[in-house]
Simulated assay, not measured.
Amino acid sequence: MLSTVDLAYPFRGRWLTQNSPASRVPSHGTALFASSFAIDFVPVNEAGRTAPITFGSLLRPEPAERFPGFGRPILAPVHGLVVAVHDTAPDHQAFRGLPSVGYALTQRRRAAAGWVELAGNHVMIQTPDGVVMAVCHLQHRSVQVQLGQRVRVGEPLGHCGNSGNSTEPHVHLQAIDRSDVVHACAVPITFGGRLPDNGEIIDAV
Rank of each mutant, 00 (worst) to 15 (best):
164 G>D: 09
145 V>H: 05
113 A>Y: 04
89 A>I: 00
189 I>G: 00
67 F>E: 03
143 V>P: 05
130 G>H: 04
149 Q>H: 06
89 A>W: 11
115 W>L: 06
15 W>K: 11
42 V>Y: 15
151 V>H: 01
44 V>G: 02
183 H>N: 10
150 R>A: 06
57 S>Y: 06
165 N>V: 02
44 V>T: 05
126 Q>W: 09
150 R>T: 11
87 D>S: 14
163 S>W: 02
196 P>C: 05
96 R>I: 15
187 V>Q: 00
138 L>K: 02
11 F>S: 07
39 I>T: 10
144 Q>L: 11
119 A>N: 01
157 L>S: 08
158 G>C: 01
159 H>K: 15
103 Y>H: 14
35 S>M: 09
122 H>Y: 14
183 H>M: 05
173 L>K: 09
202 I>R: 03
124 M>N: 03
3 S>I: 00
9 Y>T: 03
50 T>W: 15
29 G>V: 12
97 G>Q: 05
10 P>K: 09
1 M>Y: 01
177 D>P: 13
113 A>K: 15
175 A>Q: 04
75 L>C: 13
41 F>V: 11
57 S>M: 01
136 C>W: 03
203 D>G: 04
168 E>P: 00
190 T>Y: 06
175 A>C: 07
119 A>S: 14
6 D>E: 03
60 R>G: 00
64 A>E: 02
46 E>V: 06
198 N>S: 13
186 A>P: 05
8 A>P: 03
135 V>T: 07
10 P>R: 06
26 P>A: 13
89 A>N: 03
17 T>G: 07
20 S>C: 13
199 G>K: 13
34 A>N: 01
195 L>S: 05
35 S>E: 11
105 L>K: 15
151 V>N: 00
117 E>G: 12
1 M>V: 09
153 V>A: 11
32 L>H: 04
